[in-house]
């Protein structure tokens, strides 16, 4: 029974994955990302011997930007598109619960972002390998962390898209991604602020997803591995926050009518 429950989620996830993969937009995005990552070589060559650090920071930041674009434009639309194109009738009229459908969509998008990240990541690691003849473990770590980040943001976008239009959902998700990456600055500003403002900023800091936890890109440049205590707390944070967003999204989605 439980096996069948998850099998159905898997069928929907694979179908979602196939849908996004067969979408040509994704190919062009990944192609463009490859170009940008390769452009790091060019930028590195004019950096007075700082090639590696330039290639690493440019490549990783480019990857994050492209993963965010995929998340914002595919992740926030995926449920809305089903409703808009009425394909949701095909799935939901079968022995499929709302929960299975929602989770299937979520994991399908996760599969898409992970695949894109792995393709881009492989190109990136190869680039580093050919440049410096090293296999950069911190870079691999930071790519995995990046995947966690976009998975969390996918859950966020999906949740927002259950009660707003896809464009607003994309904009909100984008804003929350910006806030999430400004968390270090927000905390620093909060420390210097008067009590009332500090209270507001503290709420923002603790309530919104703290995406700087998933940022190992600055450490990669110095080949620093994250300390183990940080690794597992980040994983726990990721699982907890994502599960919370999924539950909230499910609660909204269960009462949606089509």
């Amino acid at each position: 029974m439980i096996k069948k429950y998850f099998k159905t989620i898997g069928v929907i996830a694979l179908n979602t994955f196939r849908e996004t993969i067969r979408d040509r937009i994704l190919y062009s995005l990944i192609g463009f990302a490859a170009l940008v990552i390769a452009a790091g070589l060019l930028a590195g060559s004019v950096s007075l011997g700082q090639d590696l650090r330039v290639i690493e920071s440019f490549g990783l930041t480019a990857m994050l930007i492209f993963l965010l674009i995929i998340t914002l434009f595919v992740g926030t639309q995926v449920v809305w598109r089903e409703v808009e194109r009425k394909t949701i009738y095909l799935t939901l009229t079968k022995p499929v619960t709302r929960d299975q459908f929602y989770l299937g969509k979520y994991f399908g998008i996760c599969l898409t972002t992970a695949t894109s990240a792995l393709i881009m990541g492989a190109m990136f690691l190869l680039e580093i390998y050919f440049k410096a003849h090293i296999f950069s473990v911190p870079a691999l770590f930071s790519i995995i962390w990046m995947i966690f980040e976009v998975w969390l943001l996918t859950a966020l976008g999906l949740m927002l898209s259950t009660f707003t239009a896809p464009l607003s959902s994309a904009i909100y998700t984008f804003c929350l991604a910006l806030i999430g990456h400004a968390s270090t600055s927000i905390w620093q500003i909060a420390q210097k602020s008067p009590a009332a403002l500090k209270y507001i900023l503290d709420v923002i800091y603790y309530l919104f997803p703290n995406l700087e936890k998933f940022n190992l890109r600055n450490e990669v440049v110095y080949a620093i591995n994250p300390p183990f205590s940080q690794v597992w707390t980040t994983v726990v944070y990721f699982i907890g926050y994502t599960a919370l967003l999924l539950v909230l999204g499910l609660m909204a989605f269960r009462s949606d009518e089509f």
Binding site: Q50, R53, S57, F58, L60, E212, R217, V221
Partner: peptide, 13 residues
């Protein structure tokens, strides 16, 4: 926004 090394490298170039 957390991409400190990236921005530092832009300024370096």
């Amino acid at each position: 926004l957390g991409e400190n090394e990236f921005l530092a490298n832009i300024y370096w170039l």
